[in-house]
Amino acid sequence: MNIVILSDTHIPGRAKKLPSVLAEACGQADLIIHAGDWQTLDVYFELSAYARTEGVAGNVDPWEVIDKFGRQKIVDADGLKIGVIHGDGLRKTTERRALEAFEGEQVDIIVFGHSHIPVSRQEGGITLFNPGSPTDKRRQPRYSFGILEKNGEAWTLDHVFFDSKD
């Protein structure tokens, strides 16, 4: 199973379309997970043309995105439990808010966005993963998204970094 993980696309605000490297990865995906700040449902329609697309709303998303996705969910990816949240809020770090949102839940991975800062680390047996942004790198050196590959019980989760959002 091949899963593309992304967040903070901010289309059409930060880009007019998905970067070609991301679109190519989506063409190989079995599932796409978006951790919010889509800005428009058009991004969902484009992604869902490639593969089943799950996600949550972020802090800049309009009501129709919030209504469609909600703000938090757990996605079952062939037995792998993936908590998804944007991570915005008051006080604490984005990572801490994401981790605390799934306290008491049985998740293997927590995917979050908001900061546009790529993160991949373990805490308490859970992988915290922020894919960064494929269209708005802010102060990061490169644009990014994630690829999760699952084969039976084994899985790997890595960032894909690239230099141009074209």
Score class of each variant (00 low, 15 high):
residue 106 Q to F: 02
residue 27 G to R: 12
residue 124 G to I: 10
residue 105 E to S: 13
residue 145 F to Q: 09
residue 62 P to G: 12
residue 43 V to Q: 02
residue 60 V to S: 11
residue 72 Q to A: 10
residue 140 Q to W: 04
residue 68 K to F: 10
residue 7 S to Y: 12
residue 60 V to M: 14
residue 162 F to K: 06
residue 79 G to D: 04
residue 51 A to T: 09
residue 25 A to L: 08
residue 73 K to Y: 02
residue 64 E to R: 08
residue 98 A to F: 05
residue 30 D to G: 15
residue 20 S to K: 15
residue 92 K to P: 00
residue 123 E to N: 08
residue 19 P to A: 12
residue 98 A to G: 12
residue 39 Q to W: 06
residue 89 G to Y: 07
residue 112 F to C: 07
residue 11 I to H: 06
residue 71 R to T: 13
residue 15 A to Q: 09
residue 35 A to Y: 11
residue 61 D to L: 07
residue 25 A to Y: 02
residue 162 F to Q: 05
residue 20 S to C: 03
residue 25 A to H: 04
residue 154 A to V: 11
residue 11 I to R: 01
residue 93 T to M: 06
residue 19 P to Q: 08
residue 138 R to Y: 10
residue 39 Q to F: 10
residue 158 D to W: 01
residue 99 L to M: 14
residue 155 W to H: 15
residue 29 A to I: 08
residue 142 R to V: 05
residue 49 A to T: 10
residue 30 D to S: 13
residue 2 N to T: 11
residue 33 I to G: 08
residue 166 D to C: 03
residue 41 L to R: 13
residue 59 N to P: 06
residue 141 P to K: 11
residue 18 L to C: 05
residue 132 G to N: 07
residue 23 A to F: 09
residue 151 N to P: 02
residue 45 F to E: 14
residue 155 W to Q: 02
residue 84 V to K: 05
residue 79 G to C: 03
residue 131 P to K: 08
residue 8 D to L: 10
residue 152 G to I: 01
residue 11 I to Y: 06
residue 15 A to Y: 04
residue 69 F to M: 04
residue 146 G to T: 11
residue 16 K to W: 10
residue 36 G to Q: 04
residue 60 V to P: 01
residue 129 F to V: 04
residue 122 Q to V: 10
residue 126 I to Y: 03
residue 52 R to Y: 09
residue 103 E to Y: 04
residue 83 G to W: 04
residue 98 A to Q: 05
residue 31 L to M: 13
residue 86 H to S: 04
residue 32 I to M: 11
residue 107 V to G: 00
residue 19 P to R: 07
residue 80 L to A: 00
residue 96 R to Q: 15
residue 73 K to I: 05
residue 109 I to W: 02
residue 8 D to K: 08
residue 20 S to R: 15
residue 138 R to C: 01
residue 21 V to L: 14
residue 123 E to I: 13
residue 101 A to P: 05
residue 106 Q to N: 15
residue 23 A to H: 06
residue 99 L to K: 13
residue 52 R to G: 01
residue 126 I to M: 07
residue 57 A to W: 00
residue 20 S to T: 14
residue 129 F to W: 01
residue 93 T to A: 12
residue 108 D to E: 12
residue 34 H to A: 07
residue 95 E to M: 10
residue 8 D to C: 12
residue 147 I to K: 15
residue 12 P to S: 06
residue 43 V to A: 03
residue 2 N to E: 13
residue 50 Y to D: 01
residue 108 D to F: 08
residue 76 D to A: 08
residue 151 N to W: 02
residue 5 I to N: 00
residue 19 P to Y: 07
residue 89 G to V: 09
residue 64 E to L: 03
residue 20 S to I: 13
residue 144 S to P: 05
residue 127 T to S: 03
residue 24 E to S: 14
residue 126 I to K: 14
residue 20 S to H: 12
residue 149 E to M: 06
residue 153 E to R: 14
residue 146 G to K: 03
residue 3 I to T: 15
residue 7 S to G: 13
residue 98 A to K: 09
residue 153 E to S: 13
residue 74 I to S: 00
residue 3 I to K: 00
residue 90 L to T: 09
residue 63 W to P: 04
residue 137 K to Y: 02
residue 62 P to N: 11
residue 146 G to W: 02
residue 51 A to M: 07
residue 58 G to P: 00
residue 47 L to I: 09
residue 56 V to H: 01
residue 103 E to C: 01
residue 158 D to A: 12
residue 52 R to P: 00
residue 30 D to K: 11
residue 92 K to D: 14
residue 46 E to L: 11
residue 114 H to S: 09
residue 90 L to H: 08
residue 29 A to S: 13
residue 32 I to R: 09
residue 48 S to R: 15
residue 65 V to N: 00
residue 33 I to F: 11
residue 164 S to V: 14
